[in-house]
């Protein structure tokens, strides 16, 4: 049993046997296998099935009780039809591409907004920092849905932003901002900003300000020293923050639904509509599988970072 060998390893190192860690992990391990891993295998299987009018709305329904032979006959009817359909219909291809584009633009903008804030927090007097961190975290504790909804009243045609701009005389007539891709990007930047600031702050706070002084003592102009020391050293934070924004933003549903318009194409919304409006479970499963394949590289990168960060 691995658990007893673990205990021996501890005892062998001169330590005392403490709570058996492998055994303790069994419960969450089994939970995640049943409710996280197995569901993905089911999604994969259903993505190879055909839509069917009934309950459940797909076929074949595999049931081992019918015997191995009968089950195998059914397995043979599985097909890649949903995937060829996704590849051939330009609507889906465009939805994937435009989700990636919107998420990428929003991630870069979030980084540009987040960096100066995180930088200022890391350079603030030590006594202020806990308060500043609490102020960044607080919106994150506030409902995501409500924070996105707050922008509807600001961005709409008769909204606050247009009223202010008209009052100032900056524009002659109200701008259409709500229900555009631009509004979706604003929403993503706003909703995910805390996720960007916190890892950036963690990276910036660790830096020794003496490094910057050393660079300038050696004759480096401030902007160059900033770039070569401050920015270079915060690359882990930049990567982590960007992944924390980019990955969920690609599959975002709430933001395009509330702030986007009829020509906003995002794959999370496509999946939702396929499922809830068209009731095509196999096709929405295929949409999910392809989305996961697209995101597997960034997700793996994020896991590596997270594993290193906590160790």
């Amino acid at each position: 049993m691995p658990s007893s060998s673990n205990a021996e390893a501890r005892a062998g190192r001169g330590g005392r046997r403490v709570l058996n860690a492998s055994f303790v992990g069994l419960l969450p391990y089994v939970w995640l296998l049943v409710f996280f891993l197995i569901p993905f295998l089911i999604v994969l299987k259903i993505s190879l099935s055909t839509a069917f009018y009934g309950q459940p709305p797909y076929e074949p329904v595999l049931d081992l009780a019918e015997g191995v032979g009968a089950t195998w006959e059914k397995v043979k009817t599985l097909s890649l039809g949903n995937y060829t359909f996704l590849a051939s219909d330009s609507l889906y291809v465009e939805a994937y591409l435009s989700s990636l584009k919107i998420a990428a633009i929003a991630t870069v903008l979030t980084l540009l907004c987040g960096f100066p804030i995180a930088h200022a927090m890391a350079r603030a007097p030590r006594g202020w920092r806990p308060l500043l961190i609490a102020l960044v975290i607080m919106p994150f504790w506030t409902s995501f849905l409500i924070r996105v909804y707050a922008w509807v009243g600001i961005l709409k045609r008769e909204g606050l932003l247009n009223a202010v701009l008209l009052e100032l005389g900056a524009i002659g007539e109200p701008l259409t901002i709500l229900n555009t891709n631009f509004a979706v990007i604003v929403g993503i930047v706003y909703a995910y900003l805390p996720f960007m600031i916190l890892p950036l702050y963690a990276a910036l706070e660790r830096q020794d300000p003496a490094l910057l002084e050393a660079a300038s003592d050696l004759g480096s102009p401030p902007w160059l020293a900033f770039w070569q020391v401050t920015v270079r050293l915060s690359v882990p934070g930049i990567v982590a923050g960007s992944l924390l924004v980019f990955i969920p933003a690609v599959g975002e549903f709430v933001i395009p639904n509330l702030l986007g318009g009829s020509n906003t194409l995002m794959i999370g919304q496509t999946l939702w509509n396929e499922f809830f409006l068209n009731h095509d479970w196999p096709l929405s499963s295929a949409v999910a599988v392809v989305l996961l394949v697209i995101l597997v590289v960034p997700i793996t990168l994020f896991q590596r970072y997270q594993a290193r960060e906590v160790e």
Partner: peptide, 22 residues
């Protein structure tokens, strides 16, 4: 480790759909 960290960033539509199908 993968199963513990992946749900932090997993798009919710995927998690929701997969659990429903389960």
């Amino acid at each position: 480790q993968g199963m513990t960290y992946a749900p932090l960033v997993m798009p919710e539509v995927i998690t929701g759909l997969s659990l429903l199908l389960l």
